[in-house]
Amino acid sequence: MPTLLQQQVRGDVVAGALAPVVSYCDVIDGHLHDVIDQTGEAARAIVEQLGEVDSLADVITGDAERLAGMLHRALGELESVRHTRRDQQIRTLVEQMRELNQLVTGIEETSRVTNTLALATMVSAVRAGFPAIDFSAVADEVRELARQSAEAARGVGSGIADITARLDSILADDQAGKGRFEALTETLEDAVIAARQVQRDSGALTVETAGAVGHAQFQDISRQMLEHVAGAVGDVCRQAEDVTAYTRGDLAEGELRARAIKVEDLRAKHVMSRQRSTHAQQTGQEAQSATEPLIELF
């Protein structure tokens, strides 16, 4: 059995040991609210960015639908001409057009999946504590789908351009045929523009996804803020144990005073300017504005 210290428990010593706990807890409270605000801001930013992804996926779906309509019309026009012109070259063009139609169907399907994924990720993002690993994997998947759309659109664009060129070549010596194919050529030209639009939108979608991935850095910042808070809570626990030990006669007054927590000790452990500013605010001190640039090249 350890020997109990022969000392009288003094109320002022206990009060003195407990007094800093209040300001300590004020600062901890401020830091916890910082984490709450910080995660909220980041989740909102992610949701906003995913909203852009979602909108762009919608736009791509619309673009692909228009493209499909144009190709369908062009195919119809080409097939109607095929009945009047029996040459092999026109039959080849019809086959090529059918293949392009399949590509466009692929783009439509990809955009639909992108849209669903973006929505599912948004739902995850608004849930507190969503696992960043899932978010990142989904973001990568969205990006891959967008890349596939862009590649397919590029294929469609060059395919149509090729068909148009071959059509021009077929009709080069056929003035009568030229007139009949005029509408078809125009439709094909419009389809090329639409395919380029799908490409541009898919590119923009990947930029938005990259932005959303960048926002996921908030998890690392929140983790550091919470580790800081956990350390401070540990200090308060230790102080409570010391006071208990003192009142039981297991800890000398001098040792209690020497080990006592001080709110200013927390300041030395701050890493972020936000932590320093919250500390100053919670302890009634004037906050020093951060003057250092966020990016500095030496």
Binding site: Q217, I295, E296, L297, F298
Partner: peptide, 18 residues
């Protein structure tokens, strides 16, 4: 011997620019 200092979080455009 560091070349530069960037405060987190850093956006993709900022990072790639630096």
């Amino acid at each position: 011997g560091a070349t530069g200092w960037l405060v987190k979080p850093v956006g993709p455009d900022q990072l790639l620019g630096v």
